[in-house]
Design a protein around this nucleic acid. Structure first.
Lengths: 255, 255
DNA sequence: CGTCCGTTTGAGCTTAATCAACGGACGTGG
DNA sequence: CCACGTCCGTTGATTAAGCTCAAACGGACG
């Protein structure tokens, strides 16, 4: 089939991926088992002593040399970047079980990481990580799955942000965070503690804090989500998912 | 150091990563060796018969079942996605040597791929790929590096797009494509053949084709880049790089 | 009690999307 | 060979979205 990229190629009814009901943001796959009990206990057994990071503290700084990767055990961590023209932005949030800074190719951190709310993490040196991957195939698999999941999330976020619209961007972020925080698809009335500020939501969506405020007021007024005093309430998950533009409903062209 | 995410935390003079002068978009690492002669010959030896994909044809379609990953040998390929609300966008471009659709977790393509200009690709089944990774550590390493590189590119694109501004988005894309196309940092006067349309640039930057046109006219008038009849001319690489917001110059806080 | 910080709201402005039209390149069919 | 249609690039006019500036409010905390 010839698909001319330049014309009416869009909207061919493709309804892409579905989502695993366990592990938040992955899709179609048999659930990368990121938070699998086995994976976590493996990890716990092998971990370096855990470290507490108070809210607002940097877990590590962009550009600083480092030979460690971190696994979040408790709390939220923002993966941040300062661009060369001085803008500051949040690339993604890491929740408990997520791995941060696990690329091996560089001895210098490409991004920074800041604790959002109090957090506890454990870390491996890269050499130890390499040994663990060799010795424990399950650890290696978990690690690869985590990396792949981050790529998928990044592309999903990219899609969310390229498709212009503040409401969609914010909805996508909140929906993703709710799902990952709950470890399941949100139901009406679900609440989660989210140690976020609207400023951080803005940094993660490429919006101004003031515009985030307006957007979230509209979302609140239309009874989709409410976010007050660090507590996120999902009133209408279906609407939120629709707005987020990553719907799992709908007919796939290929089942 | 306590970094309150909410206030003046920005512009701390962090000048993050540098770039390898060989392999385009990676950074600080000792050059992922994506196009390394060894990697490529390994690949050629092991490859399935190559396949020609005429311009505009789909290499594979989003949502279609597939157990193959593809390596671009010639031409450019756009990795595309149709969102659930019908928007069509280009997540990234794959150039010769790049690998596409190499996640193993799903039997269904998360994205589509369309040849931009004529392309030649070769493909592996996932099982063969797994075997190759076990048998040839260098193949495995190349593969991992490619995946990591894609993640870095995706995050860089994300940063480029989140930092509002059409000029910056277009500059970033052109700069990245020029670098990857040339396999080195662009010099003044460099030209590369880019089988792109402005429509595709729009799809990859989240902008309208008309606004891409205006933006590129401004870039042309300010003698930064020209793009005419599928030929991209870099007049002022430094300015382009500055606009792209991924400068390698500048002092890093940590050398 | 005062300060700091995050949120909210308003007013004006900038940017980019939208709508519309035109010209050129190219291919197709008469 | 020419007429026509299509697609791409370009430009103008208008509209909508989001940013900037500014002010006020409220809670947390010293």
């Amino acid at each position: 089939m010839n698909v001319s990229l330049g014309q009416d190629f869009a909207r061919r009814g493709v309804q892409p991926w579905t989502r695993c009901d366990h592990c938040a943001i992955r899709l179609h796959a048999p659930c990368g088992a990121i938070q699998d009990a086995i994976g976590m206990s493996d990890l716990e057994r092998a971990r370096a002593p855990s470290r507490h990071v108070p809210a607002g503290d940097a877990l590590f700084e962009q550009g600083a040399p480092s030979d460690r990767s971190f696994t979040i055990l408790r709390g939220w961590v923002a993966v941040t970047q300062v661009t060369s023209d001085g803008r500051f932005l949040i690339l993604r949030f890491a929740l408990p079980g997520d791995v941060v800074a696990f690329e091996r190719r560089s001895s210098v951190n490409r991004c920074g990481a800041v604790a959002v709310g109090d957090a506890t993490v454990c870390s491996f040196t890269r050499s130890r990580q390499g040994r663990l991957e060799l010795e424990h195939p399950s650890f290696d698999a978990r690690h690869r799955a985590a990396e792949g999941g981050i790529l998928e999330d990044a592309e999903e976020t990219l899609a969310s942000i390229m498709g212009r619209g503040a409401r969609e961007r914010v909805s996508h972020l909140l929906f993703q965070l709710a799902w990952r925080g709950l470890r399941r698809r949100p139901s009406p009335g679900d609440e989660i503690d989210a140690p976020l500020s609207q400023i951080q939501i803005g940094l993660a969506t490429g919006l101004t804090a003031v515009h985030v405020s307006r957007t979230m007021r509209r979302l609140r007024e239309s009874r989709v989500v409410a976010f007050e005093s660090h507590r996120l309430t999902i009133h209408d998950p279906a609407a939120l998912e629709r707005l987020a533009g990553v719907s799992t409903e709908g007919t796939a062209l290929w089942s």
